[in-house]
Simulated scan of single mutants.
Amino acid sequence: MKRQVISTIALGIAAYATGAHAQNSVTLYGVVDTGIAYIHNSGGNSTQVKMSSGNLSGNQWGVKGSEDLGGGLTANFQLENGFDLGSGQLQNNGREFGRLAFVGLTSTSYGALTLGRQYDPVTDLLQPITADSYSGIFAPPGDIDNYDDSARFDNAVKWTSPTWGGVTVETMYALGGVAGSVGSGQTWSAAAAYTAGALSVAGGFLHVDNGNTVLSTRGTSTSDSFFNSSVNSAYASSRSINVGRVGAQYVIGSVTAGAAYSYSLYSPDASSTFTGSEHFQNGSVFASWMINPAFQLIGGYNYTKSGGNSSATYHQADVGLDYLLSKRTDVYLAGAYTHANGQNGAGEAQAVIGSYDVDAGAQSQLLAIVGLRHKF
């Protein structure tokens, strides 16, 4: 009986897959990535060794598809789940499709319009030309400017232009949905990118409303939280968050080099627990060398300075090695060191490496990870 049931299920899956292949419209994909991490200074303890999941790529599985509607118009969708490989638990606050969930239409003449849970335009256009394309440990401490897309956005309507002479433009508006206050919890963003041969440049702006306390709760927003570490947790009661980012990269043979700058402003109101705006400036550089088609070496540096309500400085250096065992499987070694000084708004500044978001409990932190990644 068990064999009959299994055979029936298998035949059903095969029939569906055959239909999907015939239409060339549905793709199942994913990434599994995990390793062993060593952290010097973690939560006030000098040593931590643990299994670390999603180091180069977030663990994910998803399904995406499209349908040709004729006349240059295509319907498309994407659903993407995030999970912790070590425990099997859902990430993104337990959402089934917390990484992405959208449906849309794409026109060869007018671009793409998508609706649902999505990345913002700054992430879409700047992230690919930064060291974040390798790993989130290259992000500024605490990912205070969403360099590593720690925040995704609900209820978002996004338009992506066709590419005009190397130029791509994106705009997005996420509806807060709060009755009586259209702006409460809203997010809006715009970005543009230009590519000409070996040179790529991009820039954009992101505005997040953190919730109108008269009609909702502070922190009720279309945006995921920006406050994931001690670097900026003292400003979780901000009325709004505004981020401007620019970046560029240049490819010379097997070497790619780039730089980026961001200015992040956390603004209070009468319901905030702090007074006076807080801002963070971050400058970063990186260089990547493809030693051969299977072996990559990358290094980077971040300088982060906060000001306004508090004053702290963070220096972060990163390095990574990646070796392809096949087109879909690689092994890697990544490391980073951060040093912090000054005040973070709640006390002495603690070291935090990138979007790894582990508070050191001290002024310095060292991280080393060896891991394995497989894509399907």
Rank of each mutant, 00 (worst) to 15 (best):
G88R: 05
T8Q: 10
A37H: 04
N55K: 05
A22N: 13
D84A: 11
Y29E: 10
V103S: 07
P268Q: 01
G183I: 00
T313E: 07
L215A: 06
P141C: 02
E278W: 00
N92I: 00
N59G: 09
N59I: 12
V285W: 00
G253H: 07
L265P: 03
Y173F: 15
G35V: 08
G72D: 02
S237Y: 07
L199Y: 10
A22S: 12
S7G: 15
N210Y: 05
G345I: 09
Y337W: 10
A334V: 14
N232Y: 02
H315L: 13
G354V: 04
N146Q: 03
G183W: 01
K305A: 14
F77S: 07
A17W: 03
N93Q: 10
S181Q: 07
Q60G: 01
S133H: 06
G54C: 05
L115S: 06
S221C: 05
D224K: 01
V319H: 00
L321V: 12
G354Y: 06
R117C: 13
L333Y: 13
T163C: 06
L56I: 15
G300T: 06
L175Q: 09
G244T: 14
A346Q: 13
T220M: 01
Q23S: 15
R218L: 03
I298A: 14
E96R: 11
S189P: 06
A236W: 07
G136R: 01
G19V: 04
A257K: 00
A317M: 11
N228A: 11
G19F: 00
G70A: 07
T34W: 13
G88N: 05
T123Y: 01
E80C: 04
E278Q: 15
